[in-house]
Write a protein that binds this DNA or RNA. Structure first.
Length: 655
DNA sequence: ATACGATTTTTTTTT
DNA sequence: AAAATCGTAT
């Protein structure tokens, strides 16, 4: 038995022991939100609720894994039957079982952002819309527009009007592209990320028997990071919880930072309206940060209008005041950060206890270079997602055609790696190939080769050889690891890597890692299907990574939920945070302030805010920047002010 | 006509 | 650093 009363504070204890019904938990930063949630699940299990009747929706796969892990160690037995994961992965699992209900093959596959953009580009080609001629939005932007319309459940016009007014006059064309895109996805039997949610909800909405089964099954539904849900996700949750109405949502409206992908923190603000009988709990005791850091955080977030009133209460003793550093330029800023990190390290602080946070990846360029120069070990929570890198997509496209010979996107990628096969030649080859019962077998036949355009034949022959090589593997041996090995050593892919990239060795190592990673999956099919939903090779799980003592460089978004003793927020200039571009969005300033709040509340002991006074950009030349409005609006009136939230330092070269 | 290499631009955040 | 675009070679 767990000694709940001793291990939890009274706020948390009340939440954990509350019986059932709709519950809204407003959990401030560092208030033990995850702890509360895991103890609650443990408590349910101890009360005899079967694990398979609990649904736990989280924001990232990592959060789900670590939470279930903690639950298991609490109750001392497997909690593996709990359905836990991101909304996308939960929807994915439902759709695998019920795909036929929505007129999809149960073998549908998932396309990632890049694939989706490709399909949209094809849709534009089909409609003879040339993006380069007029000032027509590029496929990337179109993908965003279409996605946002789905996720906010609004019309394309609404999205255009609020976020892209300068494209409003093109709405008929954009509509036809969207329609064509949907049609193509259907033909290819693929779903994009948004389809997973939209179809997941459709399944529950339109198939009462499915809803009946699922809503009866899930006796308890728990949702983490509720402030970041969008309309589709919120409704899915409502539907699934409709059977037993034991719905607990946990979140912090002040940390809602994902509106760019449709998240609507009105879901959390209006939860009490949707569930008038709900009970509201607040967790406001902060165990993480010093009172000085919390003072700054509270001052900042109080500038926002739309929120539940709240204030974090510190339990820790006094620390040092945060410091605002104005540096002459980005190089000086980088120099300061690296210098300070080196000093702290010499004073005995572990590298792993320090982090540098920023609004956008490119803000960190100079810091990265300076860290390399000084030999400071660091890890970038990189912007480029592992599974989206070119070499990973290259090798997985071979796997894809083996599993699904009609996978056009995979074929396209695969063939275009060979010489003399570009966009047009591929179209020609595919026009013939796709008519065949099994494109893979057709390609392997000698006779097919002759029908291909002359210049491409040599490349195609190589392609054929490589595929034959892969097919020569025994079915049981046809694993991702083995395929990668063959491609590198006999398929000529190693040469291709070396010819194409300067960092070929690093990429080769990535591929070995990918091979290792794939062994977690039972079948190659499963591996490929899950791939699109993964962002990173869960570094937390690798023991090596956990022990690695490195400074973390991360965007604020990716830092959510994490904490460090020493935190440097760089680029605290107006235009960087708040980011100029984000201010144009409706509600942009408040969202950016929440982002700032998230960044500030990551720090446990010491917080440094820094900004460059001069910045250089190719388009605008040299610019003078001023400190962020988020800093200015809480600035002390005088340096003697006892309540001042930060000290000020200035770093300029001697003149 | 097509591929491919050189050149230019362009960066928010993520499932 | 990667993608989009442009110009040239085949």
């Amino acid at each position: 038995m767990i000694a709940y009363e001793r291990e939890l504070n009274p706020e948390q204890y009340r939440v954990v022991t509350e019986k059932g019904g709709p519950l809204l938990v407003l959990a401030g930063a560092g208030s033990g939100k995850t702890r509360t949630l895991t103890y609650r699940v443990a408590r349910l299990l101890e009360d005899g609720v079967p694990p398979e009747r609990i649904l736990l929706a989280t924001f990232t796969n990592k959060a789900a894994r670590s939470m279930l892990c903690r639950v298991e160690s609490l109750v001392g037995r497997g909690a593996g039957n709990i359905l836990g994961g991101t909304f996308h992965s939960i929807a994915h699992r439902l759709l695998r079982s019920y795909a036929s209900r929505l007129d999809y093959s149960h073998r549908f596959s998932i396309v990632d952002t890049e694939d989706a953009r490709q399909i949209i580009r094809q849709a534009m080609d089909d409609l003879h819309i040339d993006a380069s001629l007029s000032k027509f939005p590029k496929n990337t932007i179109l993908a965003e527009i279409i996605s946002l319309a789905v996720n906010t459940e609004s019309t394309l016009e609404d999205v255009l009007e609020s976020r892209y007014p300068f494209f409003l006059h093109l709405s008929p064309e954009i509509h036809s592209i969207a329609r064509r895109y949907a049609q193509k996805k259907k033909e290819l039997q693929v779903m994009d990320f948004d389809d997973l949610l939209a179809n997941g909800r459709r399944l529950l909405r339109e198939h009462p028997d499915v809803l009946q089964t699922l809503s009866q099954r899930f006796q308890y539904v728990l949702v983490d990071e509720y402030q970041d849900t969008n309309v589709l996700q919120a409704e899915m949750v409502d539907l699934i919880a409709s059977g037993h109405r034991n719905l607990m949502v946990v979140g912090d409206d002040s940390q809602s930072i994902y509106s760019f992908r449709g998240a609507d923190f009105k879901n959390i603000l209006r939860f009490p309206e949707r569930y008038p009988d709900c009970k509201i709990f607040k967790l406001e005791t902060n165990y993480r940060s010093t009172p000085e850091i919390l003072h700054l955080a509270n001052l900042s977030i109080h500038q926002n209008e739309n929120q539940f009133p709240k204030a974090l209460k510190a339990v820790r003793g006094r620390g040092t005041r945060p410091i605002l550093v104005s540096a002459q330029n980005v190089l000086r800023q980088a120099d300061f950060v690296a210098q300070r990190i080196a000093e702290l390290a010499r004073a005995g602080v572990a590298f792993g206890d320090m982090a540098v946070l920023y609004r956008a990846h490119y803000h960190s360029m100079e810091v990265q270079m300076e860290m390399v120069r000084r030999d400071i070990p660091f890890d970038i929570r990189s912007g480029i997602r592992f599974f989206e890198q070119a070499h990973v997509k290259d090798v997985t496209s071979y796997m894809r055609v083996l599993v699904r010979p009609d996978d056009e996107l995979a074929w396209r990628r695969l063939m275009m790696m060979y010489p003399k096969i570009g966009k047009i030649t591929f179209e020609k080859i595919w026009a013939r190939l796709s008519r065949q019962e099994n494109p893979l077998e057709a390609l392997l036949s000698e006779s097919f080769l002759k029908t291909a355009p002359k210049p491409a034949q040599a490349g195609l022959e190589k392609c054929r050889k490589t595929l034959l090589l892969l097919l020569s593997l025994e079915a049981a041996d046809r694993t991702p690891g083995k395929i990668i090995d063959l491609l590198l050593n006999q398929g000529g892919y190693r040469t291709h890597l070396q010819d194409t990239y300067s960092d070929a060795t690093g990429r080769e190592e990535d591929l070995m890692q990918l091979g290792n990673f794939s062994t977690r999956f039972e079948t190659m099919d499963e591996f490929l299907n899950e791939l699109a939903l993964l962002t990173n090779m869960s570094k937390e799980e690798d023991i090596e990574e956990r022990q690695a003592d490195r400074v973390i460089l991360s965007t604020i978004h990716q830092a959510k939920g994490l904490e460090w003793s020493y935190v440097f927020i760089i680029g605290c200039a107006d235009g960087m945070i708040p980011l100029q571009r984000a201010l144009r969005e409706p509600g942009g300033e408040e969202e950016e302030r929440r982002l700032f709040y998230v960044a500030v509340t990551r720090a446990k002991d010491q917080l440094y805010l820094s900004y460059p006074v001069l910045d250089y950009s190719r388009s605008a030349g040299t610019l003078t920047l001023s400190s962020s409005r988020f800093v200015d609006e809480i600035s002390p009136l005088s340096p003697q002010d006892e309540q001042r939230p930060f000290e000020q330092w200035a770093l300029f070269d001697d003149v």
